[in-house]
Nucleic acid binder design. Sequence first.
DNA 1: ATAAGTTACTTAACACCAGTAAGTAAAGAG
DNA 2: CTCTTTACTTACTGGTGTTAAGTAACTTAT
Lengths: 213, 213
Amino acid sequence: MKHENASERVRQASRSRRATQKEALRQTILRAAAGLFAEQGYDGFSMRQVAERIGYTPTSIYLYFSDKDALLFAILDEAFVRFTQQLTAAAATSTDPVERIVAIGQAYLSFGLQHPEHYQLMFVQRGDFLMQTRANEQEPRYTTFHLLQRAVQAAMDGGHIRPGPVESISDALWALVHGLVSLAISFPLFDAARVERAAEAAVRLVIAGLRRD
Amino acid sequence: MKHENASERVRQASRSRRATQKEALRQTILRAAAGLFAEQGYDGFSMRQVAERIGYTPTSIYLYFSDKDALLFAILDEAFVRFTQQLTAAAATSTDPVERIVAIGQAYLSFGLQHPEHYQLMFVQRGDFLMQTRANEQEPRYTTFHLLQRAVQAAMDGGHIRPGPVESISDALWALVHGLVSLAISFPLFDAARVERAAEAAVRLVIAGLRRD
DNA sequence: ATAAGTTACTTAACACCAGTAAGTAAAGAG
DNA sequence: CTCTTTACTTACTGGTGTTAAGTAACTTAT
């Protein structure tokens, strides 16, 4: 019996040690991949490049990520966590309902300008990413945008903005900031100063367009 | 002398016939490429596929287009001509300055929804396309957007909208429609009905946000 | 009419890519 | 000490854009 208990313990320990190592390499791959993506962008991002960085063959990566998409989505997932955090923080700052809407928009714009490559993939090239549900969670990722809908709803309930269809108004606001980020990212024409001015005009447009009285 | 004139004429004719044939094949390639792009989208678009369609080897295409980019830009150029036409036509319909701005926006949205693959490449993935100058023209392509700026300027001059920086207001409007198109294209979440409702909300937002009194 | 030159196209190849099947060496279990 | 599992590699398939070199046909000049 002693033997059995002892060997059982050893077996467990061995198993968990191996699991830890496995997870460690997974993280190594993920970090190398995220680094490569940040440096080279989507175009320069290949399984072979990632493999070379960590000193393994490309095929090894497939033991930890089912395919290139899975690896890419793991990178985007990290970015999405930061995205949600920044928007949530922004929503918490202002007390005035209209100002809160503006703050959310500015946080959104700020994220897009700071992580253009990630933004491009998250919200443009791989729109399906938003539809997926994150591991260990029930709700799909796009529910982060309910933050904006709630802010619009609150402002409307408080009589600060004109009544109207909450979802559609929220979508229009989303389109506005998304458009600003996209223009800033995609067009060399839009330098930082011009984007800044356009953002100011957008804020005025939104405030004048929504506000009651 | 007669001989020289005759041979000269023959030489010219031969040369122009060859030039015509050359142009004909160039058009054949372009049509096949445009067809492939329309059917398969950007991902399924390859030089080898184009070559197979026209019954030539891939290398032959390089005798008519310097590289894949050149071929792609030729396709986008055709789309851009249609884009400019549709926007110009829309701008000419309305007499009311504010309505004209709205009409331009609706034409923009309509184009994007009808040609999502082209739009994606023209205005998202290849923003540098807009910076290029079309063959036989002086102005770069992005000058089409001056249409919107002029409409805003006219509305402001006529006292129909609040005074403000024309370029920035125009950019904000552009961002709004561009964002709408992008969301509609990129997110499965946005079905036709939801986009339609968002567009209506956007129109109300713009009118209320811009209009004087 | 025949030789020389030009044009239009092809064949073969390079360097890359994502992904799979089969093999190998080491570690752990009995 | 053998058997099995684990971790990883080698070898390969079929795809990509692009270039260098070769060939066949047509044009021009003598």
